[in-house]
Design a binder for these strands. Structure first.
Length: 493
RNA sequence: GUCGAUGUAGCUCAGUUGGUUAGAGCGUAGCACUCAUAAAGCUAAGGUCGGAGGAUCGUUCCCUCCCAUCGACACCA
């Protein structure tokens, strides 16, 4: 039976331009997807956009647009990210406003309802007459006063909502956690989830009154309610696989494909607890791993428009177009993959990006390629390259633990391995001085340079999932024994 | 407040089941080479390993307390 693999990002909520934090998540998932493809897996890679809910509804009204038109505009911006970041072209892009998804969400709801995990209950919402808005618990102080209108107590409004019987799934969730010690990665996030579960689960509301907020998936059999956006959005991870159909792609990728879900740390609970409980309630198998990313700050502060430190992925790629040409997307990929911590919060600035570019791409990888290939062409060196099959195995040509690091989603550590190899090739050239040897013993020089070329090829090979275009360029040059016509990465002025 | 982390060279971080001079990359200064994108290589400067106690022959690495920073503690996609 063929090996299958499933990986998905979270679906970003489309109330703002694509954030570099999501670009990082998207790139990481892409690296794993590409890596698994190289390993011979049949890979299903999912991403998309989350497009329902109150926030988008009110924003659309403000912009004088229909909600659909409003989210259509954003969906394109997010879809464009795939091109910008050179994401593998076979990526599936699902929108929660897709007709199939909405139907799937309704079937999912019905299944959970039939299993007895959805019930109707009076729900008390908080309403600030100053803001003329409903308030959540985090938007009021301990005396139930609005944080914006200080001292003004909110009013309580009773409405009927559907609730999800989360609390009744605690035991099953606990059993699942106990049996899967690496379910959430990294483990400190898993510990948070275990503590959360231990503190006890409360049922939560999963619908809204249509009259107030119609922008959602209608609750099956009750036109007066729409699903709360969380409930509908989470179902995308399986609706993209054809759910409610349980054969074909669903069986192939969800059941057999060890589903991996990437998310940001603000999504840990939704992915690793609530969604898993929902799956149990619908009699469906759990995810295999939830991989949680940290946030990207800039200059030690959270990115925000008012501080003016927001870094837009489109701007970054545009900025490197002039010096790196079609490899510009790889510059951003390189930086986010190697210079951001694999699991914890990281800091990104244009200065550190420029430093990393100059040090490791211009002076490192790019320069190494030039110096090796120049000698290959000058001395007319011949060599035999290893096969893909050789390189996919654990062998001497591949850094120890390289594959393990990727399997554990520590992509930064794997990148560090590759650059250790770049550095050691530079050191080798300096140490063996083939350019001097060539003057007295051309055969020996060819032997040294041939070895360098093979090792450069391996660097290109290993780099494929991380920096696809750069990898392809390097492997092509070594294969064809050609000197690059121009530097891979030009220096910035 | 409760629980959990983190605090190591200018910056980003690694590290030791406790044992002679604490590591890497980037940055800085000097030397030197020419295959290469004035790149690469070598050398150097720079740290009381957050603070205070304790256990130990001995700890940055164990225990206690304190300080600082951060995260989780649910209806914020």
């Amino acid at each position: 039976m063929e090996k299958t693999f499933y990986i998905t990002t979270t679906l970003p909520y489309v109330n703002a331009d694509p954030h570099v934090g999501f670009a990082m998540e998207f790139i990481r998932a892409d690296v794993v997807a590409r890596y698994k493809s190289l390993q011979g897996y049949d890979v299903f890679f999912n991403t998309g956009t989350d497009e329902h809910g109150n926030k988008l509804y009110t924003e659309a009204l403000k912009a004088n647009l229909s909600p659909q038109a409003y989210v259509d505009g954003y969906a394109e911006k997010f879809r464009g990210l795939a091109n910008l970041l050179n994401i593998t072209p076979s990526v599936h892009f699902i929108r929660t406003t897709d007709e199939h998804h909405m139907k799937a969400a309704q079937v999912f709801w019905t299944k959970v309802y039939d299993n007895g995990y959805i019930y109707k209950k009076q729900y008390q919402t908080k309403y600030c007459t100053g803001c003329e808005l409903e308030k959540t618990d985090s938007e009021v102080d301990e005396n139930d006063c609005c944080l914006i209108h200080v001292g003004r107590k909110v009013e309580y409004i009773n409405e009927e909502n559907y609730f999800f019987a989360y609390s009744r799934l605690a035991d099953k969730l606990q059993t699942f956690y106990d049996a899967h010690p690496t379910f959430v990665i990294p483990d400190f996030r898993y510990n948070e989830m275990k503590a959360f579960l231990k503190n006890g689960l409360h049922d939560f509301s999963i619908s809204r009154v249509t009259e107030k907020m119609p922008w959602g998936v209608p609750v099956p059999g009750d036109e007066s309610q729409v699903m709360y956006v969380w409930f509908d959005a989470l179902v995308n991870y399986i609706s993209t696989l054809g759910y409610p159909l349980l054969e074909d792609d669903f069986e192939k990728y969800w059941v057999r494909g060890t589903p991996v879900q990437y998310c940001g740390k603000d999504n840990t609970r939704q992915q690793s607890s609530m969604w898993q409980a929902m799956l149990i309630a619908a009699d469906l198998p759990q995810s295999e791993h939830i991989v949680v990313n940290g946030f990207i700050n800039s200059g030690g502060q959270k990115m925000s428009k008012s501080i003016g430190n927001v870094i837009n992925p489109y701007d970054v790629v545009a900025r490197f177009n002039g010096v790196a040409g079609e490899l510009a997307s790889d510059v951003l990929r390189y930086y986010l993959l190697r210079h951001m911590n694999s699991f914890e919060d990281s800091d990104m600035t244009n200065e550190s990006l420029d430093d990393a570019y100059t040090a490791n791409l211009c002076n490192g990888l790019g320069n190494l390629t030039s110096r090796v290939m120049k000698m290959v062409t000058n001395y007319e060196v011949e060599y035999l390259l290893p096969t893909d099959a050789d390189l996919l195995e654990f062998n001497d040509a591949v850094p120890e633990d390289f594959h393990t690091k990727i399997d554990q989603f520590d992509l930064k550590a794997a990148m560090d391995d590759i650059w250790r190899e770049v550095n050691s090739l530079d050191w080798l050239i300096q140490n063996k001085e083939p350019f001097k040897v060539a003057k007295t013993d051309i055969d020996e020089a060819r032997r040294i340079v041939g070895d360098l070329a093979i090792r450069l090829y391996i660097i290109g090979f290993l780099l494929q999932p991380f920096m696809p275009k750069t990898a392809e360029t390097i492997m092509g040059l070594v294969k064809e024994k050609k000197n690059p016509e121009k530097p891979l990465f030009n220096r910035r002025n």
